[in-house]
């Protein structure tokens, strides 16, 4: 469904991604783990067209999408939940959600209902400005806004950031539910253990390179991975 083939990216002179290759198939949850600064966010931004890539190729459903504008990618079926949520602060919950759907959208009410079934609290909060919400609720709005585009694939960047463990568990539950609806999920997370537990496959990024990859179950029990990324000894 999505394949990234030896893609590099830089911020000015600082090279952040080095020949990264990865893929995600329909129906999968794929997690990307790695330390702070390993390039997880940059990889997602490159896929989303927010960072200009150098060399390599990004292909989504058979179409080369390097250099394609983000709003076009959304229309093609990729949605993105950024690090830090990036909601529209001066808009209500409902308005934020509405912005995720296209202008002409006959099924906008069904999509709203899907999001509100997923996160019932957003129904209560629908007329509140998003900045009055808790971190967990804001994360729900960010995921909800992305889902309003009815994506085939959802990119999530560090959804645990700033959330309590309970709130993060709710988000994890929602991600699994979304995936069961047939949406492929690409999850970049520093809280690696939870991410790996719910994902089918995992890529380990280190200094902008893919340092390892495999089935999440296997990597979870790999002593090297446990020591380096999960902070637990054998």
């Amino acid at each position: 469904m999505l394949s990234v083939d030896s893609v590099s990216a830089s911020y000015g002179n600082l090279r952040v991604l080095w020949d990264v290759s990865m893929s995600a198939e329909a129906g999968e949850i794929v997690s990307i783990i790695g330390a702070n600064g390993a390039g997880k966010s940059t990889l997602l931004k490159s896929i989303m067209g927010l960072v200009r890539t150098q060399g390599g190729e990004i292909v989504f459903e058979g179409t080369r999408v390097n250099g394609v504008a983000p709003h076009t990618l959304v229309a093609m079926g990729i949605a993105y939940v950024p690090e830090g949520r990036r909601l529209f602060p001066e808009m209500t919950v409902r308005e934020n959600l509405r912005m995720g759907a296209p202008r002409r959208c006959p099924e906008v009410n069904e999509r709203l209902k899907f999001v509100q079934d997923l996160f019932p609290v957003l129904e209560e909060r629908r007329f509140q400005l998003v900045m009055t919400l808790s971190g967990g609720e804001q994360q729900m709005v960010a995921i909800g806004r992305a889902l309003m585009a009815k994506p085939k694939m959802l990119l999530l960047d560090e959804p645990s950031l700033g959330l309590s463990p309970i709130a993060f568990e709710k988000v994890i539950g929602a991600i699994e539910k979304i995936n069961r609806e047939g949406v492929a999920v690409l999850l970049a997370e520093q809280s690696s253990e939870r991410a790996m537990e719910i994902s089918d496959r995992t890529y380990v990024l280190e200094n902008g390179r893919v340092a390892g990859s495999g089935l999440s179950d296997e990597l979870l029990h790999d002593p090297m991975v446990r020591l380096a990324y999960l902070g637990v000894g054998t």
Binding site: L50, P89, M91, E95, R98, M99, G100, A101, R145, A149
Partner: peptide, 25 residues
């Protein structure tokens, strides 16, 4: 209106507007 809200969304965070599917250009 949708277009009006798209203008406001772009003024609040143009990049977020763009990856929410709004043609910010």
């Amino acid at each position: 209106t949708y277009r009006g809200r798209a203008i406001r969304a772009t003024s609040q965070d143009w990049e977020a507007a763009e990856f929410s599917g709004i043609n910010t250009k």
